[in-house]
């Protein structure tokens, strides 16, 4: 597919009112900290982790088939990198009124059932995900200790089958960060479930 860029530009300009593109972070941007409630009832902020070398912020949820396929992988990454100084924080960005399977109680059940070793936070009022520019679950943001965004995107290149993964994008990015180099690729893409919001009247 080779389309004329100029025509696209011209044409998309006619439809500016129609696009829903969000402005989120790009690698190099400074991410906002948050104070969100986890399934244990406590509030969590990145500022609480004084000794962290970096943060793995994962927007995920209870029911999206892609999020479910990655649950065990997310938990394994949280365990593996905790000892190396990297803190994984999962945020559920869905509005439970729009997605009833994502209530706080059901998040607690999920965390218990799967033995999550990381805080599983509620994006109360859906204020955090738009700032990050998360559009789907799962959607990962890797930050360094100063909250500078280092990597955005997918966990790896095979949602269906963890054993068939060729590129562990997130782990490669953490390794790069740990080695003091820039992750490459710094962004990747994957299919996911759209974040659920109430329809605006």
């Amino acid at each position: 597919m080779k389309f004329l860029p100029l025509l696209i530009l011209f044409f998309s300009s006619l439809f500016l009112g129609e696009t829903t593109e969000s402005n989120g972070y790009q690698p190099g941007d400074k991410a906002t900290d948050f104070k969100l409630k986890s399934v244990d009832g406590k509030m969590y902020s990145m500022a609480d982790y004084k000794d962290a070398k970096g943060f793995i912020v994962v927007f995920t949820c209870n029911t999206c088939p892609f999020a479910i396929k990655y649950e065990d992988r997310i938990n394994a990454i949280a365990k593996k990198y905790k000892s190396k100084g990297y803190v994984l924080l999962a945020i559920n960005p869905n509005d439970p009124e729009a997605q009833p399977a994502d209530t706080f109680e059901l998040m607690q059940e999920k965390a218990k059932e799967k033995g999550f070793v990381f805080p599983y936070l509620v994006d109360e009022g859906q204020k955090i995900y738009p700032q990050y520019g998360a559009t789907k679950t799962p959607h990962v943001f890797l930050l360094d200790k100063n909250l500078i965004v280092k990597y955005i995107g997918a966990i790896d290149d095979n949602s269906d089958d963890a054993s068939a993964v060729k590129e562990k994008y997130l782990e490669n990015a953490i390794r790069a960060l740990d080695n003091g180099t820039e992750p490459s690729p710094a962004t990747t893409k994957a299919i996911g479930c759209s974040i659920k919001t109430k329809k605006k009247a």
Partner: peptide, 28 residues
Amino acid sequence: YNAWLNKIDDSWSGAIPATLIISGKRKL
């Protein structure tokens, strides 16, 4: 996905639904 989503459109974050219209060389 990372290998092909951009070939549909650079602006596609990977969330669905998503819709592409093609007419000759034009697309939206």
